[in-house]
């Protein structure tokens, strides 16, 4: 029995502290969790893409929906979302700088960069809340959702009108513009309703302002559903990321990792934080740009 090794419980379960991946258990599990989470988001965005193309004619364009900028009046398409994206990328940079400082055992620098990361995350979550507020409240003019009925396109085809969102041509509300599907063009042409036709339509439909899970002033209700669901799910991730970062931040200040001899914990939450940024990169492209 000369080859018998003494294996205590710690070595048995830690694989003698060896990993074919060259990474610790915690880091590996964080990676595996991120893979599964990435697949959830892929599923959401794929479903979004499916319905977006299915209802291409009445799908709103993000640049016509998200046009507000805090404290500045007027029409600023996509600018605020671009700023939010910048803030999240910036907080990703401060996070990776915290990780780098951890490798040098520089407690002061880790504290500083973690603090900036948390602040960036909070600004981002706040911005999302602000954007939700504007999306839910909508515009003063609102839009008109048609009831059961039909209308005839210039090429003679008859379309069902139920659920179609018409936009007012101007504030007098005398002309209602209906989207008219034009093959694969991203910009749809409009069909206008006036006079008796408009009066008939108004009798059956309803005015709507803003968006919720049933109605969406800007177009198809599914746009609002997906918007709330996907940005909400991402926002939850950002929020929990901020909470995790805060816990680690407190530990850094208390000197837990200085005593432990390494800052790997900062690296692990760093992975999660970068993932949140990574998801936003995709949400930004597929929700706001395309």
């Amino acid at each position: 029995m000369s080859h018998t090794e003494v294996i205590d419980t710690k070595n048995a379960w830690a694989g003698d502290n060896n990993s074919p991946f060259g990474a610790s258990y915690g880091k590996l599990m964080m990676w595996f969790f991120l893979v599964s989470d990435a697949l959830s988001f892929t599923g959401f965005l794929a479903a979004y893409g499916f319905y977006r193309h299915n209802f291409a004619s009445i799908w709103p364009t993000a640049e016509n929906v998200f046009t507000h900028f805090p404290f500045i009046e007027g029409h600023h398409p996509l600018i605020y979302v671009a700023l939010m994206t910048f803030i999240l990328i910036m907080s990703s940079v401060t996070m990776v700088l915290a990780v780098e400082a951890g490798h040098r055992m520089d407690k002061k620098a880790v504290t500083k960069w973690m603090l900036f990361t948390i602040l960036g995350g909070l600004i981002f979550v706040g911005s999302q809340a602000w954007e939700w507020y504007h999306f839910i409240h909508g515009t003063e003019l609102g839009a008109f959702q048609l009831g059961i009925g039909t209308y005839t396109l210039p090429d003679g085809t008859i379309e069902q009108t139920q659920g179609i969102i018409g936009r007012w041509a101007d504030e007098s509300k005398q002309v209602l513009l209906l989207p008219w599907k034009e093959s694969s063009e991203a910009t749809a042409n409009y069909l206008s309703l006036t006079g008796q036709e408009l009066a008939n339509a108004i009798a059956k439909g309803q005015e709507i302002h803003g968006a919720n899970l049933h109605h969406n002033e800007y177009g198809h209700p599914l746009f609002a559903d997906f918007f709330f669901f996907i940005t909400g799910f991402h926002g939850t991730h950002v929020f929990s990321g901020v909470v995790l970062n805060f816990i680690i931040f407190v530990n850094v200040i208390m000197g837990t990792y200085q005593k432990r001899g390494h800052y790997e914990m900062v690296e692990k939450v760093g992975l999660y934080w970068h993932f949140v940024d990574l998801v936003w990169v995709f949400v930004f492209t597929f929700f706001y740009l395309i």
């Binding site: 502290n17 880091k27 990328i89 780098e100 490798h103 055992m105 790997e264």
Partner: peptide, 30 residues
């Protein structure tokens, strides 16, 4: 603990330069 990464001041400088370069790449693309 063998999986913890440490590096020197020199390497740290290099890493920081890489981090900021990447930041400008991401900013440009955005």
């Amino acid at each position: 603990y063998k999986y913890a990464v440490h590096h020197s001041e020199e390497e740290g400088k290099k890493t920081r330069r890489m981090i900021w370069n990447m930041f400008f790449v991401l900013l440009t693309i955005t």
